[in-house]
Design a protein around this nucleic acid. Structure first.
Length: 229
DNA sequence: AATAAAGCCAACCGCGGTTCG
DNA sequence: TCGAACCGCGGTTGGCTTTAT
């Protein structure tokens, strides 16, 4: 029974901008009962708003200790410093700025300091640029790996040839020079060609967040990206 | 003057932590 | 101990206002 009436209430919740009457009802409720028990606001005042909505309205708009007006340069400095230390912990930042809400600070940060998301076209260009750079880095890495392997195999061959010569001086020669050469198979090198490996190294399309995070670091060139998107 | 783009902010949503019966 | 209710937080959205073309 309780569940049913609760469900009916939920279906009747009002959403969207608050009216002056709703503000007044909520303010009166808080004056009488104090903050908290937000879910009982609807029951006691007849306000058709969820507890969550009531709390948000009170905290962000109706609270008497709220400071109205623009963020001052001093406050901006505090926001910047605290954000550098705390990251996106808006409520923690807001506690250090009396009269300002987490929502207000969050909005201020996003409009003033957050990197603007580039257009679709610009993003595509950046992505292409990023992929080309990744490909080139892999190519250079594999090339150096290839050279290293060749040097090692050359050394091995030289050692084996020396051993062979020494043993030939001591005993009759055996026809396994070719067998030694065969141990140096090109197969072991084939997979290292840049063209073939580039395919295996392509980035997963769905790992967008990670990709963009890397991309911003690349574009910024400082690695200090917040990676917020 | 019209309209598209950007700025701004209030409000909503989803999730995780805490409290309580 | 467990599950439901409550609360708070950060991220996102929608719509109004302002600015640029």
């Amino acid at each position: 029974m309780e569940a049913i009436s609760s469900l009916m209430l939920q279906e009747g919740w009002r959403k969207g901008p608050w009216t002056a009457l709703e503000d007044r009802l909520l303010t009166e409720y808080v004056q009488q009962h104090g903050e908290g028990s937000w879910n009982s606001v609807a029951k006691l005042t007849g306000l058709r708003r969820s507890g969550k909505s009531c709390r948000l309205r009170w905290v962000n708009y109706l609270r008497p200790d709220l400071k109205r007006g623009k963020i001052t340069p001093d406050e901006e400095t505090v926001i910047l410093q605290l954000h550098a230390m705390l990251g996106n912990r808006w409520s923690a930042i807001a506690r250090c700025l009396p009269g300002r809400t987490d929502n207000e600070i969050k909005n201020y940060w996003r409009t003033h300091f957050k990197k603007a998301r580039p257009s679709r076209r610009a993003r595509a260009q950046l992505l292409h640029q990023y992929q080309l750079q990744q490909q080139e880095q892999r190519r250079q890495y594999l090339q150096s790996l290839h050279l290293l392997q060749q040097q090692q195999q050359l050394q091995l061959l030289q050692q084996q040839n020396q051993q062979l010569l020494m043993s030939q001086q001591q005993s009759p020669p055996e026809p396994d020079h070719q067998a030694v050469m065969a141990t140096v198979s090109n197969d072991s090198l084939q997979d290292c060609s840049p063209a073939s490996t580039a395919e295996h190294c392509t980035l997963p399309d769905d790992d967008d967040a990670l990709l963009w995070d890397s991309l911003w670091r690349l574009v910024d060139g400082d690695g200090s990206s917040g990676g917020e998107y």
